[in-house]
Design a protein around this nucleic acid. Structure first.
Length: 188
DNA sequence: GCAAGGATATCG
DNA sequence: GATATCCTTGCA
């Protein structure tokens, strides 16, 4: 598990830094809702709105460790790769499919773009209530010992334009030694 | 190191 | 309306 916090309009790394817009509107609403946005034209990233209404904040889910639906995640990744490569190179898809088949389960959602892909999300999921037990996408209380794991706090990723102190505040939280964490501090 | 890819915020 | 940028990924 790996998350990053984006808190308030002052946070120069947050989508809320320009104030309320059509895209980030849900960040200004009540907490517990999903904010899904598209980055780099191809990756849908999942955020959880966190602070009370009027205070724009969200937690970017950068990585999760799949425990269910692993085969479905693989098949979906392969299917997506097929549509992506169809117009280009045909045997490109064969190598991509093989790579996904060999990928360890822990690496199927080890990055913000991969989390969105693993859950099959797109921007239309924005606004869904993640605290509703009946919601198809929801937060649930952990039943295992995750709470006892060491949590690492490090600077956030991919926000080099934000300036200080935003580029160095340790608002990226990850579980120490967890194989699904992206980038540095991944288990070896 | 860099290309892929599309929405978005900002500027003319 | 054009364009630089973007909370990324996987391969050269």
């Amino acid at each position: 598990m790996e998350v990053e916090a984006y808190i308030g309009q002052d946070d120069r790394a947050s989508h809320a830094r320009f104030g309320e817009t059509a895209r980030n509107r849900v960040m200004f609403g009540p907490p517990g809702r999903a904010y899904v946005y598209l980055v780099y034209g191809m990756y849908d990233c999942l955020n959880v709105v966190t602070e009370p209404e009027g205070w724009p904040a969200a937690l970017l889910i950068r990585a999760v460790e799949p425990v269910e639906g692993i085969d479905a995640m693989r098949l979906d990744r392969i299917a997506r790769a097929r549509t992506r490569h169809r117009a280009r190179c045909l045997d490109r898809h064969a190598t991509e499919a093989e790579r996904v088949r060999r990928l360890p389960a822990a690496r199927l959602a080890s990055g913000p773009g991969l989390v969105g892909a693993a859950f099959g999300l797109d921007t239309r999921w924005t606004g869904i209530d993640l605290c509703d037990p009946l919601s198809p996408l929801r937060l649930e209380r952990a039943s295992d010992g995750d709470a006892a794991t060491t949590v690492l706090a490090t600077p956030r990723i991919g926000i080099d334009g934000a300036g200080e102190p935003w580029t160095s505040v340790p608002w990226r939280l990850s579980l120490a030694g967890n194989p699904s964490v992206s980038g540095p501090f991944r288990a070896r």
